[in-house]
Design a binder for these strands. Sequence first.
DNA 1: AATCTATCCAACCGCAGGTGA
DNA 2: ATCACCTGCGGTTGGATAGAT
Length: 201
Amino acid sequence: METTMKKKGRGKATITSQKEEEGTVRKGPWTMEEDFILFNYILNHGEGLWNSVAKASGLKRTGKSCRLRWLNYLRPDVRRGNITAEEQLLIIQLHAKLGNRWSKIAKHLPGRTDNEIKNFWRTKIQRHMKVSSEHMICSGNSQSSGMTTTDQGSSGKAIDMAESFSQAKTTFNVVEQSNENYWNVEDLWPVHLLNGDHHVI
DNA sequence: AATCTATCCAACCGCAGGTGA
DNA sequence: ATCACCTGCGGTTGGATAGAT
């Protein structure tokens, strides 16, 4: 499995203040220790009731934050990186059908999170559409498609995208991501086993 | 080597819907 | 019917990193 966790902090980094240390809500990147606590708690007690999870586990995080961390990162079936060509095609087709219903789209892609798909769409597909749109405008072909780079206009265009995906994927140059500087979620498992729960997923 | 720019993506926020009192 | 709380979703932010200059 490719479930991994980055060692280095990413995303919003809210400096942990003295106040936060003293009991208020913590924000920003999760530490490995927090991941470990949450991971073990959920393995022992199950998912759901996120506010209870946040309180009972002793994490100074909101229930929302715990839920997000679990769903997007710690869940054992999360697949990371390397969105395959087939997955890309599926995303394009589903987006054409469902629009920005990322969670619905994610349900069709086992192991992929709505956040990951959303990020993928925004950073890869939308940009590709923008680039190809500009290219068509430059070459005088924009009149037939009425292109736009917004989501509103992207669904119809996505159908074209799907149709021309075979060619596109050669130029997409997407997804080959490095997994260096990651730690594995599996790294957390042995300790969990030591805690006496052998029902590993 | 230093600086600038573009890209990635984890995590936040606000809102809406569901549920129970 | 109303209120409060919880959960889930979609949009956005901004720090880290890679690549270009």
